[in-house]
Design a binder for these strands. Structure first.
Lengths: 213, 213
DNA sequence: CGCTTGCGAAGCGAATCGCTCCGTTATACA
DNA sequence: TGTATAACGGAGCGATTCGCTTCGCAAGCG
């Protein structure tokens, strides 16, 4: 008779912990981070990482695909909002929240899988339509493009005081830093509203973000 | 008879190149970067680095002190402006420009020298007065504090597409990325103007930025 | 020329890297 | 409750990279 896996639940918990830890550690240390750091942060042995992913690279690719999935979900939720502005803000804050931008430093360090490419394309399309809707409603400043918004998200999603304090174990300051971060985000989002003077320079080319992978 | 240093000019050029390279490499790779990377980026031998700084740590400390000096200079220039808003914007853009915020990741990895502490205190005082002036003139949104502004600067000063393309040698895209970055900054700065709704959460404590060192 | 100063890079021991191996632990089933 | 076994943690592997030293050579001065 075929036996069930004895420690299946623990395995699943560990997998989630690994992905969560990898994202956080990547945000702080960048792409050079070590597997030992990730495993330690997840409270898991190194072997548990290699039981699920054949290489460090494979873990990162899986993490990218997962994050792109969340990204797509955030846009869809934004499009589901009736109010174009509220929808846009939801998308921006959600995307920053799960640190999608923290994966930017990975660009160029790992091969792009088919799944990654496909999801990236899809998320770009959806984002464009979300931005277009906000433009048509006149709530988003007219000279801000989809690339501008994506770049702003990435910029605000990068490692901040929050992650730094978390790593240092200064749990008392994490809340304070989170609060401060939300304020920064609110400031930047306010800058996206219609009614400001023209932006400097020219609109960025549509493929700027894709070029680095 | 006392001789003049035969290659004094070259030495000075190399020193400047080293500091410049260290700053850029730090912005891309974070605090874990190697001396070899820095020297290579500067187009200089490793020995030239160690002739001027006894350790890697000493180089970083010197870089911090220098950056804090530039930071102070930027505030003073801002205060010299007649228009409080123009002065504030000058300070913010200048501070972002020389990547003062790129040194944030160094926090906690090197001991703080007396010079660093002193300059940090001085820059904090000056910044507060620059912000206060903008508040009094009613050009800066009333609920934005000095810490909010400093944090925004650090957030925008972090490694971006620009540095990434530079490292990858994609010189054709560096201009495009720089342009895009300036637009992001303009958006965020617009969000600081008076006339927006209230910011979320509570004002960050004044020592939040100092706590991590 | 000599003398000095600074140069680049090969090479040092130590530390860290990605990854494997193995004795241990926890759970589903008899 | 005993046993089989999937999944566990972490010591340890060779390879790489680290911070740093040493050294032979080049360049400006008398």
């Amino acid at each position: 008779m075929a036996r069930r896996a004895p420690r299946h639940a623990e395995a699943e918990r560990n997998d989630r912990a690994l992905l969560e830890a990898a994202k956080k550690v990547l945000a702080v240390d960048g792409a050079h981070t070590s597997v030992a750091t990730i495993a330690a942060r997840a409270g898991v042995g190194i072997a548990s990482l290699y039981r699920r992913y054949r290489t460090k690279e494979e873990l990162f690719q899986h993490l990218c695909a997962l994050s792109l999935g969340q990204w797509i979900q955030a846009v869809e939720e934004g499009l589901a909002h009736d109010d174009p502005w509220e929808g846009l803000v939801h998308y921006i804050t959600a995307a920053i929240e799960f640190s999608g931008g923290a994966l930017g430093p990975l660009a160029g360090t790992i091969p792009v899988t088919d799944e990654m490419a496909e999801k990236f394309t899809r998320s770009e399309e959806l984002t464009r339509s979300l931005i277009a809707r906000a433009h048509e409603a006149g709530v988003l400043r007219a000279d801000a493009t989809a690339v501008d918004v994506s770049l702003l998200i990435e910029q605000l999603g990068k490692s901040s005081l929050v992650e730094q304090f978390e790593v240092q174990g200064r749990t008392d300051l994490v809340d304070e830093a989170s609060n401060a971060r939300r304020r920064i985000i609110a400031i930047a989002v306010d800058g996206l509203r219609a009614g400001h003077g023209p932006l400097p320079g020219r609109p960025p080319g549509p493929d700027l973000l894709a070029e680095r992978w």
